[in-house]
Structure formats: C-alpha cells, structure tokens
Design a protein around this nucleic acid. Sequence first.
DNA 1: GGATCGATCGGCT
DNA 2: GCCGATCGATCCG
Length: 205
Amino acid sequence: MKLAPLSSRFTALPTLKVAEKLLGCYLVRQWEEHELVVQIVETEAYVGEDDKACHAAAGKTRRNEIMYGPPGAAYVYFIYGMHYCLNLVTERDGFPGAVLIRACTPIQGIEAIRIRRPGRKDRELLSGPGRLCAGLAIDRNLNGTDLTSPTSPLFIAKGPPVPKNKVETSSRVGISKSAGEARGYPWRFFIRGDPHVSPGRPTVR
DNA sequence: GGATCGATCGGCT
DNA sequence: GCCGATCGATCCG
C-alpha cells in the first residue's frame, strides 16, 4: 500500500478546501508495533477568530497556540473531562485554522483497534472524534506532531479522490448557542451514505 | 429508534 | 464557577 504523505503546501490552503479534500485520505498511526491505517470519511472546518465556534475565537491561549503555528501540525485537545479530539492545523503560520477529523473507516490493523474499543460494532470503532482518538490511542502527547512527516507516530497520507457527488455537507456538530450565526455554517464534510460517518446530528437542521 | 442525562476535568472568566 | 468541537447507558415506545 503506497502511503505518500500530504504536502505542507496542501495543509496551508484555506481550511474549507483542506476539510473537503481530506475526505478519502489515510491516517497512519504507529502504535506498539502496529501500523494502523484508516481512511477519513468526515471532517469539520474551524477558521479564524471570527468563527465563534473555533477555539481561537477568544484569541491565542496556551491551549490553542498550536492552531496559530505552522500548518501540518496536529492540534489535539481534551474535552468533557474524558475525550480527545484530533485536528490538522491549516492556513499560513500566524493565522489560526484547523480541520477536526470526526470519523474514519478501519483499513489495516482493525484487530488492534477492536481491542481498544471492546464491545463495539465495527462501524462504531472510529465513528466520532472522541471514538477515533480512543481507537487509535491519540492523546495530548501527540499535540504538535508533524502530520506531514512519514516518520511521525501519526501522519496523514494522500488517498484516492472522492467524487464531488459523494461529498455531503451540513452544519457542524455540537456547536452551542453562544456561537451565534456560526452555528449554521455548512462546514461539516462527509462521504454520503458511508456507514462509518458519526451519528452526530448537525447543530442546525 | 429517539430523547435524555450523567460522567469528569481542564481552560478561561 | 461555568461550561464544553462527546460518549454511552438508560428509559421509553
């Protein structure tokens, strides 16, 4: 299986573009002798301080500073006291943007993923941002990892192009009322009909 | 299948 | 002191 990493030029593109083009790409995780390979089926874009749902909405802090740095880095954060979420940093150095990776299809190493997610059906192994991190052993130790380097313990590789008519959009999931009009932005991208897409319901219908 | 709710804690006001 | 880019158990139908 050929696994060519994403170029840093690609990760510096506008966040919405990266979010859409990330569908079909592979996420490769080296974990305890296992090479886990999964394919991205659902993403969300978070762009700039004007996006009230973006962690950068209140300015730069210790937590979100990775988003302000060079594109291609992993932004991993802890949420709800028990879950982690994985993002790919986008845009130019100095401008905050990231793509939340929300769901994947297992391609290689599914046995190891099943062990990390006992009692779950295969379609539920990686179908949500918290589930994805649990299944692939992603936590704050990977914050800042270069996702464009094939020698990283976690990186992203190019995948087959996904036809435009297979890409569906909706508003993002789990955005609170305080985000104002940003709640309705159609910045969630997913592969139409794919069983591994998360059950998360769009914030605005 | 859908609605509701508790878990659990770091970040920021 | 409040609340979140979530998950999964439970209750109801």
